[in-house]
C-alpha cells in the first residue's frame, strides 16, 4: 500500500487548489466564515487531543480506585478531571478497556474511522487505512506484529469494532521501572497508538 501514498506533486497541488477554491467560495456565499475552519483546527490543538487520554491513563496507573471507576463509568470518571469538552463531538459516549497480563485490547472501526475525539484527537492514517480495517478483525496478532507488538498465543486478544455510539480507548499496561515517575512523566510515555492497542508503553529510559 505504501505506493498508494506516494502521490506525485501534481495530485497534491490539484487537491490543494481545489480545497482552497471551495473554501473561498463557501466563505463568499456565507456557508463558512473565514475564521470557521481555524476554530475547528485550534480545538484539536488545545482542547481535544491525545494529551487528555495520556493524562487519564497516567491517573489510572497511579490510582487503582480511579482506574476501577474509569472502567465502570468512563464519562463520569473522565469528568472528575475537569477537562473541557469531554462529552463533545465524537466522544458523547466513550468507554475505556484495560490491557492486563491476560488480555490485550485493540480498537478498530471496520466501517469508517470512529475515534474518541475528546481524549485522542483525530485518527492517524494507519487507523483509517482500509488494510488495517480489513485485517485487524481477522488477524489482529499478525497486524500487531507489523506494528512491532508481539502478543503471546496464550494471551486473549479483544478487538473492539466501533459501529454504533461508543467510542473505545485502551488503558495500556503500566511499563516496568516506572515507579519513580510523576503523573506528568507517566503521561508523556503514552501514545495515541498505545491507547488504540497497536503499541505498548515501553519502560522509561534511565535519565
Amino acid at each position: 500500500m505504501a505506493a498508494l501514498f506516494g502521490y506525485d506533486d501534481d495530485r497534491e497541488a490539484a487537491s490543494a487548489a481545489k480545497v482552497r477554491a471551495l473554501e473561498a467560495l463557501l466563505i463568499k456565499k456565507g456557508v463558512l466564515g473565514s475564521d470557521s475552519i481555524d476554530a475547528v483546527l485550534s480545538h484539536f490543538e488545545t482542547v481535544a487531543g491525545p494529551f487528555n487520554g495520556a493524562r487519564i491513563v497516567a491517573r489510572a496507573w497511579l490510582d487503582s480506585e480511579y482506574k476501577r471507576r474509569l472502567l465502570q463509568d468512563t464519562p463520569k470518571a473522565i469528568a472528575e478531571l475537569n477537562f473541557p469538552g469531554m462529552d463533545g463531538a465524537e466522544g458523547e459516549h466513550m468507554k475505556a478497556v484495560a490491557n492486563s497480563e491476560s488480555v490485550h485490547n485493540l480498537v478498530i472501526c471496520t466501517l469508517c474511522s470512529c475515534y474518541p475525539w475528546p481524549v485522542l484527537g483525530l485518527p492517524p492514517y494507519w487507523y483509517k487505512d482500509p488494510v488495517f480495517r480489513a485485517r485487524g478483525v481477522r488477524e489482529p496478532r499478525a497486524v500487531l506484529r507489523e506494528f512491532g507488538v508481539q502478543i503471546s498465543a496464550d494471551k486473549e486478544v479483544k478487538v473492539w469494532d466501533s459501529s454504533a455510539q461508543i467510542r473505545w480507548f485502551v488503558i495500556p499496561e503500566r511499563p516496568a521501572h516506572s515507579e519513580h515517575l510523576t503523573e506528568a512523566q507517566l503521561a508523556a510515555l503514552v501514545t495515541p497508538e498505545a491507547m488504540m492497542g497497536v503499541a505498548l508503553v515501553p519502560a522509561p529510559t534511565a535519565a
Binding site: 500500500m1 501514498f5 494507519w126 487505512d129 482500509p130 488495517f132 480489513a134 478483525v137 481477522r138 507489523e146
Partner: peptide, 11 residues
C-alpha cells in the same frame, strides 16, 4: 472490509 484478505502490509 472487515476480513478482506490479500491486501499486504498495513500502513
Amino acid at each position: 472490509l472487515g476480513g478482506l484478505e490479500g491486501l499486504g502490509p498495513v500502513n
